[in-house]
Design a protein around this nucleic acid. Structure first.
Lengths: 196, 196
DNA sequence: CTTTTGTGTGTGAATATTCACTAACATTAA
DNA sequence: TTAATGTTAGTGAATATTCACACACAAAAG
C-alpha cells in the first residue's frame, strides 16, 4: 500500500508540517512549500504527483510513526496506571521535538478537502484509540480505573482532554513546556478516573 | 463596538454558516455565498465591506447569542449539578437547531486567516469559560464536585470533552442525536467529577 | 400633482492576484 | 550516455474585490 518514502520526500513532508502548524491549511501552498525547501515550485512535482499526495503522505507518515512510538513505549510489565502515563509522556515528548506535527492531533482544518484525506485522518484517530483502549479496559478490569462510566466514555474524556491540551499549546505558540503541563494534566486525569 | 446587523446581513450570516457546515472553510467563497443568497456576487458587498467582515460578524453573532442563551438558561435557585447539566443541555439544543454553527465552535479550521478572526474565536471560547467557571467553583465550594484536582483542570477536562463531542458529531455529518448523546456524556462527566 | 433628487439594492463585466500544475530545457552524478 | 533532479516560464481556473450602471421607491421642490 504505502510505498517507502525517499529522503527528499521526507524533507518535503516535514516542511509541509512546519507550514501547516505555522500558517494553517491556507498557508500550505506549493509556492510556500518550495520556498521552505529553497527550490522552485516545479521541483516539488519531481517528488510528488500532486498536493493531495503530499498531505496524505504527511498524515500516513504520522500515523505510522505514532503507531511505532506507541508500540515501543509500553511494556507488558507495567501497571495500567504506568502505561497510561507512559503513553502520554511519550506523546508529549514527540510533539515537543516535532511541534510541526501538532497538526495531526487536531487536523480538523484539513477535514473536507478530499475523501482520501478524511479517511487518512480517521486512521490517525484510530491509531490512538487502538493503543489507549486496551489500557483503559485492563485498568477497569483490575478495578484500578473507575467502572462508574463505560470505557467508551472514559476514552472520550481522556482524548478530549488531550486534544484540548494540544490545542492550547498551539494557540500559545508553543510557548509553554508541553511535557510539564501535559504531564500535570495526565496526573489530574488519573486522579479523576481512578476508582476510590 | 459591534453595530447592530440588518436583516439582510443576518440572512447572509446564516447563509455563510450553512455553507461552512456543508462544504467547510474552503467552500465559503463569495461566489457560493451569492449563489446561496440567489443574487450576484457584487451584491454581497452592498452589505459587507469584505469577506473577513462577514466571518467576524458570523462569529460575533454567535458569541452574543451564546452569551444570551447562557444567561437565560441558568437560574440562581439551581444546584451546581443542575446548572452544569442545564448549561450543556442548552448548548446541545442550540446546535441541534443551528448545526451550521458547529464549525465555528471548534473552528480550528478557521484559525489562521487573520488576527481579528483569531481574536473573535478566542472570544467565543471566553464566553463559555465565563459561564462555566462560577458553576464549577460553586460546586467545589459546596463540596459536591471533587476538590482532588484544581478548578482549572476540571474546566479543562470538561471543555475538552465537550469539544470532542461536537467534533465527532460534525465528522459523523450530524447523523446522530446530539442532545441525546451529549446529555449522556454530560451525565458521565458529572459522575466522574462528583466528589465521593 | 408632478418633477427632481437622493438612497438602497441589485447587475454584469473587468480587475489583479493566487492557485495547482505542466512543458521545455539545464545540470549533475552514476 | 542516461537517469535523476533541478530551473524558467508559462497555463487556465478560481479567488476577492471594484467598476459603471440600472431599477424601485421615497422625500423634497417646483
Amino acid at each position: 500500500m504505502t510505498e517507502a518514502i525517499s529522503g527528499r520526500q521526507l524533507e518535503i513532508i516535514e516542511a509541509a508540517g512546519k507550514i501547516l502548524t505555522a500558517s494553517g491549511v491556507g498557508g500550505l501552498t506549493i509556492k510556500n512549500l518550495a520556498k521552505e525547501m529553497k527550490f522552485s515550485e516545479s521541483a516539488i512535482y519531481r517528488h510528488f504527483p500532486s498536493k493531495e499526495e503530499i498531505i496524505i503522505s504527511l498524515l500516513e507518515y504520522l500515523a505510522k510513526s505514532m503507531d511505532d512510538r506507541y508500540k515501543n513505549a509500553i511494556s507488558a510489565k507495567q501497571t495500567p496506571e504506568e502505561k497510561f502515563v507512559t503513553v502520554f509522556q511519550n506523546q508529549f515528548l514527540f510533539f515537543k521535538k516535532n511541534p510541526h506535527f501538532v497538526v495531526a492531533v487536531f487536523s480538523d482544518g484539513l477535514l473536507e478537502e478530499s475523501q482520501r484525506i478524511n479517511e487518512t485522518i480517521s486512521k490517525i484517530m484510530g491509531v490512538k484509540m487502538k493503543h489507549l483502549m486496551p489500557i483503559i479496559l485492563e485498568g477497569q478490569q483490575k478495578k484500578v480505573f473507575t467502572n462508574a462510566i463505560t470505557s467508551e466514555e472514559l476514552i472520550h474524556i481522556v482524548m478530549g482532554t488531550f486534544r484540548l491540551q494540544m490545542f492550547k499549546w498551539r494557540v500559545a505558540n508553543f510557548q509553554f513546556d508541553i511535557s510539564r503541563n501535559g504531564n500535570n494534566m495526565v496526573q489530574s486525569l488519573l486522579t479523576l478516573i481512578k476508582s476510590k
